[in-house]
Each structure stands twice: as C-alpha cells, then as structure tokens.
C-alpha cells in the first residue's frame, strides 16, 4: 500500500490498533448483553440506549481511579507488567491479513510471528503474579504459565496443518491457498476440520477463557494475577484478554476459514471481519455454556490427548499433501 515500510507499519499500526481496541471495548458490552440473553436477564441497561453508554462509562471510571501499589509489592515490576501485557497483546495484530495486501507487516514467517508474540504475554502475566507479593496472584501466575506453555504445543502443531497444506508460513499465502471456498476447516475433511477445532480450543486455553480460565478462577483465586491491580492497571489486563481472544479468532479465520476470500461472493475486508466476529461470538457462547476445568484435569487433557493428537494431525496432513 505505502512504499516506505516504516510509514506502512506506522499508519496501519495506528489504524488497526485503534479499530481493534474499539472493537475489544465494544465486545465487553456485547458479551455482557449476550450473557444476559443466555441467562434470561437484561444485562446492562442503565447508561444510554440498550446500555451502550456502559463502555464509555467504564472507560472513564478506569481512567480516573487511583492506581494503588501495595506496600509489599515489587514496585518497578508491578508497574511494568500492565504496560508489557497490552503491548504483547497488540503485537500479533501486525501480521494478520485483513484483505489482499492489507496487512501491517507481510512477514514471510507470519504464522510463527503471531504465535510467538501472543505467547510473549506469559512473561508480563508471571511478572505481575510475582511482583504483587500476594498468594492469589502468585498461584494465578503459576497456573497461567503452566497452562500457557502446555497449550502452546498443540496450538503450534494445529497451526502447522494449514502450513503443511498451503506450503507457506505467510498468512497471506495461506489465505490465497484457500481461494474458491476451499477452506482448510472443510477440506481436507479429516486433518483440516480437526485441526480447526483443536486450534480454537487451545486458543481458548491460551487466552485463559472458560473452560480453561483456572488462572483467574474467581471462586478460588479472587482474580488471579490481577487481584492487586486497580484502575487502568487492571484495565490493561482486562483489555489484553479480550484482544488475545480477538486475535485468536482472527488467526482462526485466516488459517482455516479462508480469511478475506468468500469464493463467488467476492473478496474483501468485510468477509475477514465477519468471520473473525463470528468466531469471537462463538467464544462468548462457549464461555457462558461450559464450566471450568480443574487444574490437573486441564494439564492431563493437554498432555494426554491434545499433544499426541495434534502431532498425528500434522502427519495426516503431510500424507494428504504427498498423496494428492
């Protein structure tokens, strides 16, 4: 789009970051409304029509609240963690292709960059857990790390299936390989479909969403690593979680659902956004339908079933590519 690579990254960065942060803030309202629908209650209603002003009210509230640092905490680390967590959450957006050529940085290792950057979030989360000097926060941080590194392997291996099928790490090439509705989620029916399900499930675990939200587990850990954070410091973690979920949906749409391409219905930004939002809403649906797993059940599920399963899926995809 823009010739100068610096300027290209800067302009697209500003636009994408602004829009996605807006979507993430809006999705908090949407999720509360959606949860209300599922649980037969109205959700937010007071501020503005349909409670739409709620997100503005929440933003103002977060901005003007005092940022308390506990006396026992490690002050520099405690204040650094929220900054890093939001930065790490925003970075994977750089490689997500929104349309043909419409990508912040068209890296030839796009998939790896997105997955590596999104797992960087574990460092600030553990930093926050440790620096808070609070037992709940420490336990939440440890659970996050154990869960994050465990589910990283099935996540990476399930994302390898589209890499094998498209023979490229570049997200744009992977989308291009699915042109004409030959989505990897549908075709080949075996490895592609299963890898899509596995990718979305492990992405839920990476983003600490229900049924994998034991690092936060309100009933045991109060709020996990965010227990000592107030005001905007807390808001950063909250926003980062929504961004992480949104990015997982966008990656799922690009890797498995054909991204911006919609076969005979044309191609464009709107299809990519629509597919991302459908997956995003699906994640909300899961959240309000399922229960939380226990910590050891979660690890056992990952290591006993998902890791060998995802390895076999990669092998099956390679056989498919070789034989066809």
């Amino acid at each position: 789009m823009i010739e100068n690579p610096w300027l290209h990254g800067l302009v697209l960065g500003l636009v994408v970051v602004a829009v996605v942060m807006g979507v993430a803030a809006f999705s908090i309202w949407y999720e509360r409304k959606f949860a209300g629908l599922l649980q037969n209650r109205p959700g937010p209603t007071e501020v503005g029509p349909w409670g739409l002003g709620q997100l503005i009210a929440d933003a103002i509230k977060l901005l003007q609240k005092e940022q308390i640092v506990p006396a026992a905490a490690d002050r520099p680390l405690f204040l650094l963690a929220p900054l890093l967590v939001l930065t790490a959450a925003l970075v994977p957006l750089a490689v997500i292709p929104w349309g043909p050529g419409l990508v912040g940085a068209d890296l030839h290792v796009g998939v790896l960059f997105a997955l590596a950057a999104s797992s960087l979030m574990l460092f600030p989360v553990w930093m926050a857990g440790w620096a808070s000097n609070n037992k709940y926060a420490l336990l939440g941080g440890m659970r996050s790390v154990a869960q994050g590194i465990s589910y990283e392997i099935p996540l990476l291996l399930s994302a390898t299936v589209p890499i094998v099928l498209a023979q490229s790490f570049r997200l744009g090439d992977i989308v291009a390989a699915q042109e004409g509705l030959r989505w990897f989620a549908l075709w080949p029916p075996g490895p592609g479909t299963l890898a899509f399900g596995l990718f979305m499930a492990t992405a839920l675990a990476e983003a600490n969403r229900i049924p994998f939200d034991i690092p936060e587990a309100e009933s045991e850990l109060v709020a996990g690593v965010t227990v000592e954070y107030t005001g905007m410091n807390f808001g950063m973690f909250y926003l980062a979680e929504y961004l992480h979920t949104f990015i997982a949906s966008a990656l799922g749409a690009a890797l498995f659902l054909g991204g911006w391409d919609m076969g005979p219905l044309g191609a464009g930004l709107h299809w990519m956004v629509l597919k991302t939002l459908v997956l995003f809403a699906g994640i909300f649906w899961v959240r309000w339908s399922l229960l939380r797993l226990r910590s050891d059940q979660l690890m056992e599920l990952c290591w006993r079933w998902l890791v060998p399963g995802s390895l076999l899926l990669v092998m099956a995809a390679a056989l498919w590519v070789h034989l066809t």
């Binding site: 960065g13 901005l63 609240k65 970075v91 940085a105 890296l107």
Partner: peptide
C-alpha cells in the same frame, strides 16, 4: 516487512504507555 513490524510494535508500546500515563494524569 520487518521494518513495518518494528513500526507496528512501536505503535503498540506507545498506545499502551499512553493509556497508562493518561490514567496517571486523570486519576485521583
């Protein structure tokens, strides 16, 4: 494209810092 990625990371860091500093200034 790596230069674009670097610019993108810089934007992300500045936006995150701006939100925190803004809250510092506006907050009680």
């Amino acid at each position: 494209a790596w230069l674009s990625a670097a610019a993108f990371v810089a934007v992300a860091a500045v936006v995150a810092a701006a939100a925190l500093v803004g809250a510092r200034v506006l907050g009680v």
